[in-house]
Amino acid sequence: MSVGLLFDSTKCIGCGGCTAACKEQNNLPLPIEPVTTAYTWTIVEKRDGAFVRRLCMHCLEPTCVSVCPVGALQKSASGGVVYDAGKCIGCRYCIMACPFGVPKYQWDRAIPVVGKCVLCPDRVKAGLATACATVCPTGATLFGDRDALAREARARIDAEPAKYVDHVYGLEEAGGTSVLMLSGVPFERLGMKTDVPRQPLPLLTWQILSKVPDFVILAGAFLFGLHWITHRRDEVRQAEEDER
């Protein structure tokens, strides 16, 4: 089973319980900052009269996982995109590449690592909901099976079409994400990125990278061949000199 979250902006009252619980669960230092940072992995932001959570979307085919040269970021079987700080070399390609702008860096540390929501892997393993979903007093953040949450999201829109924008954010963005969102105001007005491609982004580089072995074999053979042909004249001359 692949788990996920459903965040329903219309139910959120902006209490910040998710932020506080996240800090506690992940031993993150205070204070709670107004934007997500390497030390504050989720916040509630008020935009256009509505509240919206900022957190990792946990892509089904994550860009950050594909770009990390040392595999420090991985999509776990349970659904979260987890981070192994012990592997990270600090190239920050994940921060640069993430279409949602999620991973953050410890710019103030001499030995820095990346910080991002990891979907509470320890809690999920223990059969618990994520910290944010556990404490949410309004049920705005729901934890559960990603596909079931997708159906729930659709059902909520169908039940109250006047209340919701007819779009489940995360169903298709970047090829689909484990975190889904519902909203009463258009998503771009919540500050959500709406120009994210619908296909998984890792494909864009894999189209090129997958050709590298072919290129090495073919171009290698070609270059050796080229050398062989262009140096034939030298060999002929050498042979003639030897005869003389």
Binding site: V65, S66, V67, C68, P69, V70, G71, A72, K87, C88, I89, G90, C91, Y93, P202, T205, W206, I208, L209
Partner: peptide, 16 residues
């Protein structure tokens, strides 16, 4: 930790 790139492989990464 630059040597990590030699040990922990991710052929899907351009950075790799």
């Amino acid at each position: 930790r630059i040597w990590h790139a030699l040990v922990f492989w991710n052929p899907h990464s351009v950075m790799f």
